[in-house]
Amino acid sequence: MKKIIKIVFNISFVVYLFVLVVLLFLGTRGFLRSDLTMIEYIKNSSNFVPFKTINTYIRALFDRSMNIDIPIKNIFGNLFMFLPAGIYLPYYTRKINKVSDFLIFMSILLVLIEVVQVVTRRGSFDIDDFILNMLGALIGFEIWKAKVVQKLLR
């Protein structure tokens, strides 16, 4: 039974990576503004103010100032997009079993993803995306640390 669980887990990891690449780099959300210089593009498409877009989306949920699925997709999509990474990462890299190591690795990975999105013009650098992605990954990491999950996958 454990062997079947591990096979399913490995297949789900490959599917997760594929979906993640599509969502982050190949989807239709990219701006692709080739008429702007890179500096202009970064200035126009980036958010370096923590909680700026999160606050906008939360406010919109209450005052209905935008279509409700926009804040829901952005907040919960970013939150849950990296939740599986919090489970897969410590499973595949046994050295990342402390929260401090996990935070360092995820921070590097998430900043790298945000930078690649800007450089390829397939998205923007948004510190709020980073915050929500990190929070989701930490939730996943805590799920990984649960004894029932450890028993199931070890």
Rank of each mutant, 00 (worst) to 15 (best):
9 F>C: 13
9 F>T: 10
10 N>T: 01
13 F>V: 09
14 V>I: 14
18 F>M: 14
22 V>Q: 13
30 G>Y: 08
36 L>H: 09
38 M>F: 06
39 I>F: 15
45 S>F: 05
45 S>R: 08
47 N>A: 05
50 P>S: 07
51 F>R: 00
51 F>T: 15
52 K>Q: 12
53 T>P: 01
53 T>L: 06
55 N>S: 13
57 Y>C: 13
60 A>I: 02
61 L>H: 10
67 N>E: 11
67 N>P: 06
68 I>E: 12
71 P>D: 03
73 K>N: 12
74 N>D: 09
78 N>M: 11
82 F>K: 04
84 P>V: 03
86 G>Q: 06
89 L>P: 07
94 R>I: 08
95 K>Q: 15
97 N>T: 08
97 N>G: 05
98 K>C: 05
101 D>R: 11
110 L>V: 12
110 L>Y: 02
114 E>R: 04
115 V>L: 10
116 V>F: 04
120 T>S: 05
123 G>N: 10
127 I>H: 04
130 F>Y: 15
134 M>E: 01
135 L>W: 14
136 G>I: 13
136 G>V: 12
137 A>G: 07
138 L>M: 15
138 L>N: 09
139 I>Q: 04
139 I>F: 10
139 I>V: 14
140 G>L: 05
148 V>G: 00
152 L>Y: 00
153 L>V: 10
